[in-house]
Design a protein around this nucleic acid. Structure first.
Length: 856
RNA sequence: GGGCGGUUAGCUCAGCUGGUCGAGAGCACUCGCUUUACACGCGAGGGGUCGCCGGUUCGAAUCCGGCACCGCCCACCA
């Protein structure tokens, strides 16, 4: 070690991540470790396609957790010698990005329509060039070992080609079609959105009961509704076929108040006899359930609410042009004037809202593009049923399957400008021409006898999730047969938030099988949602958000990564600043333990040494730590992996082994130095996937290190170094030290006092040293007996306190003995419990009795 | 309305194929330490009717049933 480095080690007593992280990250990146050559097979290699963050996004705790998990795995696999590729990229995020730029424009007093589509889209691209890289840089702060050389974007030219190809193919198969259908209209974004983008919230509305006069009678049929304004579009009233009250009315008619339309009374199973009056007004144009009923019965579909959220001409002169809220009041008032309102009361029910804009969904019939999913779903269901795609935790497997088995058509068109414009051109007669480019569209049109000059391109874009569904293979170059696709598809692992299992994961499985010919990934790990420390949602608007970058600034990336892994669980977790601090403390601990070893190891080289029992002990424990870490990781149990490592490093290695070997190290014992360096070397390899920066930094101080830790092999396990007998002997001796210390503390012996003690038989040097005892052959009464140690009276010991302590210990032992005697006296236990359990209890009993004897 | 998960120390969580768990970790707390790696430290300690009720069992935090809260997902009862 050169003088400067030695100096640095001698004077720095803390791990200081600030300067080191950036420096180390650059070295990794320059080393080429992040972008493996596309060689070998997907089975031999390891790959992950990052869940592409939105270009508009900033790194939040969800990314921090999910990024740490992915990076830990990629690093571990890389250290196994595999080609490990972590594909990086961002999502164009249609609505979110368009909204950001629209807001910017509004600030300048510009409406996007003034700008026009082309100029607007150019503005968005400008925005993305300027700000779109932010989140990628933030992932770097985390230490993410992604392939930054091949960053992808879902609107890259190649990517657009892949999307169009998929669209065209599904269209040709008849799975994609255009239809007038009930959609979730979001007045906030002025676009249709899919079922998955709708959230239901409890709302208190007023439930009105309205009388509809029965034709040819003085009676009325009373219906209940929370949206009286939709009555203007009613085209029937339905009752349950088994409802005896109304049987005679079915087939007859009622008159729609205010409008005067004749409405047939129909019978449909959907109607709940119990609810309200048991008669349901049917509005096929503005209610999803009524729409279905309407189609079943061939009812007329009337639209009285337009896409602008206002009443249309079909609503009648009196109401046309009103907003739905105004119309609601006006209709109620009109009905009241006519004496049609029988009852009204507050009513709490769940109402759909747009997840994106927060506005109440307006169900209406609209001409949109849909994708039929059942055919695509079938093989995707099988893949999961057969565990070709494995979902962890397993409970989500059923969630996935249930949803997939009842999958419904997907509304894929969006009335936005930012996104993949649907590659369809309409001829003058409404003919649909699907083509990859305008030129090809003209050619195709000409072939079909359609005037190419009359073609008009569809203005809608595709749902962002349509392009996301292709992510694992489109990022690798599909539809071209690229080396990357051959080497890394299917990918190995996907980690994802629960809420996008349907939105994204399920669709990737379907598209992967359909287009790339194979499942997109083997394992899906559903990561927990990170909540604020108080259990609330982490959100900027609530003020409960914690910025991972702030945490990195203060504690370092390793600390945050450790914390993230340590809180990770199969259920949602609260962010724990204490766990992050624990990570920071661990990094410092590693740093300081390394200083001790490196500054005292002389010119030793790392090598396991097995001459002494304590050396065999630590090698045995190291082996167990490695085994435990790997087993946990294989089960995606990151918390146990990282906490197990913590316990080994802190307690066994630092608290005990380092203390035990210190004198040998200071005396220049080459075996001690070699063994310490060896264990340190292995510890760094073990911890690197979780805490890459501090381990890489320390690694550089080890002798003869020519390659970076990031590309070095993971810890090797050698069964010949394991000696469980030595291990338990050392553990007994450690317990002996603790017993003596406990006694000393209780009795109030000054910490620094070294006590004279007679010791029966042999006891390793470290026991007396760490317990602060001095072997003596003197006679006289022992003031305390702790195992083979008899402590002699001295001025440092409070004799009364000692006696109390001994009596308390006797009491404890008597209690234990009594408990076991009772257990063994139980016939049922002796007869039915497994023999080894009974034997174990007998042995404990004997041990306790011997111990009690010793105390006199 | 269906389904899933949770309820264990002051806080956040482990343990839950029944016995070694008459229960652990981190933080917080108490006492003692300038012990030549580390006070982001060292040593020792206190603290829990394992949500409630019942059952199975020789034995239950751990299995079964019921109840009570809390959370999440799915769902076209107006």
């Amino acid at each position: 070690m050169d003088e400067d480095r030695r100096q640095a080690l001698e004077t720095t007593t803390r791990w200081e991540p600030g300067e080191a992280e950036a420096r180390i990250f650059s070295r990794w990146r320059e080393s080429g470790a992040f972008d493996p050559p596309p060689e070998g097979t997907p089975e031999e290699n390891f790959s992950i396609a990052i869940p592409p963050p939105n270009v508009t996004g900033a790194l939040h705790m969800g990314h921090a957790l999910n990024g740490t998990v992915q990076d830990a795995l990629v690093r571990l696999r890389r250290m196994e010698g595999r080609k490990a590729l972590w594909i990086l990229g961002t999502d164009h995020a249609g609505i979110a990005t368009q909204a950001v730029v629209e807001k910017q424009l509004r600030a300048e007093g510009i409406d996007r329509h003034e700008l026009g589509r082309e100029a607007f889209v150019e503005r968005v691209w400008e925005w993305r060039r300027e700000y779109g890289g932010q989140i990628v840089e933030q992932y770097q702060r985390l230490g993410a070992s992604c392939d930054y050389e091949r960053e992808r974007f879902t609107l890259d030219e190649d990517y657009v080609r892949a999307v169009i190809k998929v669209f065209a193919s599904l269209y040709e198969k008849g799975l994609i079609y255009r239809d007038n259908y009930m959609v979730n209209w979001d007045p906030g974004t002025s676009s249709a959105i899919s079922d998955l983008e709708v959230v239901n919230r409890e709302v208190t509305d007023t439930l009105y009961e309205i009388d509809y006069p029965i034709e040819g009678s003085d009676e009325v049929l009373t219906v209940a509704t929370v949206r009286p304004e939709t009555m203007l579009a009613d085209t029937a009233v339905a009752v349950n076929p088994d409802d005896e009250r109304y049987g005679s009315l079915v087939g007859g008619h009622v008159t729609l108040p205010l409008v005067g339309r004749r409405l047939p009374v129909i019978a449909d199973e959907h109607v709940d006899v119990e609810f309200g009056t048991g008669a349901l007004k049917i509005t096929p144009g503005h209610d999803p359930a009524d729409f279905e009923i309407g189609r079943r019965h061939g009812l007329e579909e009337i639209s009285v609410i337009g896409e602008d959220g206002r009443m249309t001409a079909a609503a009648g002169e009196r109401f046309a042009g009103m907003t739905t809220t105004e119309a609601n009041a006006a209709v109620v008032e009109a009905l009241r004037d006519e004496g049609r309102i029988r009852d009204e009361r507050p009513y709490e029910h769940s109402v759909p809202f747009s997840e994106r804009s927060g506005e109440r969904i307006e169900p209406l019939i609209s001409l949109q593009w849909f994708c039929r999913m059942d055919e695509l779903a079938a093989p995707a269901i099988e893949a999961v049923e057969r565990d070709e795609v494995r979902i962890v935790p397993e409970s989500y497997k059923r969630v996935y399957l249930n949803w997939m088995r009842e999958i419904r058509p997907w509304c894929i068109s969006r009335q936005l400008w930012w996104g993949h414009q649907i590659p369809v051109w309409y001829g003058p007669g409404g003919e649909e021409v699907v083509a990859e480019t305008p030129e090809l569209a003209r050619e195709a049109a000409a072939e079909r006898g359609i005037d190419p000059d009359a073609l008009r391109r569809e203005t809608d874009v595709l749902d962002t999730w349509f392009s996301s569904a292709l992510w694992p293979f489109a990022t690798l170059g599909w539809p071209e047969d690229t080396p990357h696709l051959r080497a890394f598809y299917p990918t190995s692992f996907l980690t994802t938030a629960r809420e996008i299992i349907f939105l994204w994961v399920a669709r990737m499985v379907m598209m992967g099988i359909e287009f790339a010919g194979a499942i997109p990934f083997r394992d899906v790990y559903v990561h927990p949602v990170v909540q604020a420390p108080d259990g609330r949602r982490m959100s900027k608007s609530l003020g409960t958000g914690i910025d991972p970058l702030d945490e990195i600034d203060v504690h370092g990336a390793d600390a945050l990564r450790f914390g993230m892994l340590a809180i990770s669980s199969t259920q949602d977790v609260r962010y724990s600043p204490e766990r992050v601090q624990q990570g920071r403390d661990l990094a410092t601990k590693m740093w300081n333990a390394s200083r001790l070893i490196l500054l005292n190891a002389g010119d030793a080289r790392p090598a396991p040494r097995t001459e002494r029992p304590e050396d065999r002990w630590i090698l045995t424990r190291l082996d167990a730590a490695v085994a435990g870490f790997e087993a946990s990781i294989e089960g995606y149990d990151f918390a146990h992996a990282v906490l197990g490592f913590y316990a080994f490093l802190w307690s066994e290695f630092c608290d005990w082994y380092l203390e035990i070997v210190k004198p040998r190290l200071y005396d220049g014992d080459p075996d001690a130095a070699a063994n310490l360096l060896h264990v340190l070397d292995q510890v760094l390899r073990l911890a690197h996937p979780a805490m890459p920066f501090v381990t890489e930094e320390i690694w550089g101080y080890l002798p003869d290190r020519e390659q970076l830790l990031i590309v070095s092999p993971k810890p090797s396990r050698d069964p010949s170094l394991v000696d469980s007998e030595a291990a338990s002997a050392i553990e007994r001796e450690i317990e002996q030290v603790r017993e003596v210390r406990r006694w000393r503390d209780l009795v109030g012996v000054p910490a620094a006092a070294v006590l004279e003690a007679r010791i029966e038989g042999e006891l390793p040097e470290f026991v007396t040293r760490l317990a602060r005892l001095q072997r003596s052959e003197a006679g006289g009464e022992a003031i305390a007996t702790i195992g083979p140690v008899e402590i002699l009276a001295s001025g440092d010991v409070d004799a009364d306190g000692a006696r109390e302590r001994i009596e308390a210990e006797r009491e404890r032992l008597r209690g234990e003995i009594e408990r076991i005697e009772r257990k063994l006296g139980n016939q049922g236990f002796v007869a039915k419990a497994p023999p080894e359990v009974v034997e174990g209890e007998r042995k404990k009993l004997a041990d306790y009795r011997a111990e009690l004897d010793r105390l006199g």
